[in-house]
Simulated scan of single mutants.
Amino acid sequence: MTSHQSTQTMKPATAAKKLGVYLEATPAEFQEGVVSRTELNALQSDPPEWLQELRRNGPHPRPVVAAKLGISIAGLARGGITEPLTTEQIDALKRELPEWLQKERATQADVRKETARIKAKNDERAAKSDGPRS
């Protein structure tokens, strides 16, 4: 009995998300086709020039923009950023450091602190419950 393994494919939008690029900025042949798991792995391990260029200069999708600015995606929306940005635009925002960006970075820092505090508390609680029993 032979097993037939079907090739896993994904929509271009899914592949673009996994690659961290803005779909509309990818080549037409990428946008119009389907991407197999093998093709995705090849793109990740040996990115073609168009992918290197997109990753380097953008335009970048919102999750990448948020990460580069050190804020949340919701923080981007609160700051009025709804469109993809290029690396140059992101760098300009970092230099200008508008008030909304400062506020969002502070909010993100508070969220990280709170997350760390909760994790430490949960770890401590778990350690106590795993302790010696009589």
Rank of each mutant, 00 (worst) to 15 (best):
Q5R: 14
Q5E: 15
Q5Y: 04
S6M: 14
S6A: 12
T7S: 13
T7M: 09
T7R: 10
Q8H: 10
T9R: 12
M10A: 09
M10Q: 11
K11I: 13
K11G: 08
P12S: 15
A13N: 05
T14N: 13
A16K: 03
A16I: 06
K18P: 00
L19S: 02
L19D: 02
G20K: 04
G20Q: 05
G20A: 05
V21P: 03
V21L: 04
Y22I: 06
Y22P: 02
L23H: 06
L23I: 14
E24R: 11
A25Y: 00
T26D: 08
P27I: 12
P27W: 02
A28N: 07
F30P: 01
F30E: 08
Q31S: 08
Q31R: 13
Q31F: 00
Q31M: 08
E32N: 15
V35E: 00
R37L: 14
T38Q: 10
T38S: 11
T38W: 01
T38H: 08
N41A: 14
N41E: 11
A42M: 05
A42W: 00
Q44K: 15
S45G: 05
D46T: 11
D46W: 00
P47M: 05
L51D: 03
L51R: 01
L51T: 05
Q52P: 06
E53W: 01
L54W: 01
L54M: 15
R55V: 02
R55D: 00
R55N: 04
R55M: 05
N57E: 12
N57C: 08
G58D: 07
G58V: 06
G58L: 07
P59S: 12
P59E: 12
P59R: 13
P59D: 11
P61Y: 01
P61E: 09
R62L: 14
P63N: 10
P63F: 04
P63R: 07
P63M: 07
V64Q: 10
V65A: 07
V65D: 08
V65K: 05
A66R: 06
A66M: 03
A67V: 03
A67Y: 01
A67E: 13
A67D: 09
K68Q: 15
L69I: 11
L69Q: 09
I71H: 01
I71C: 03
S72G: 08
S72W: 01
I73H: 02
I73L: 03
A74T: 14
A74N: 12
G75P: 04
A77I: 12
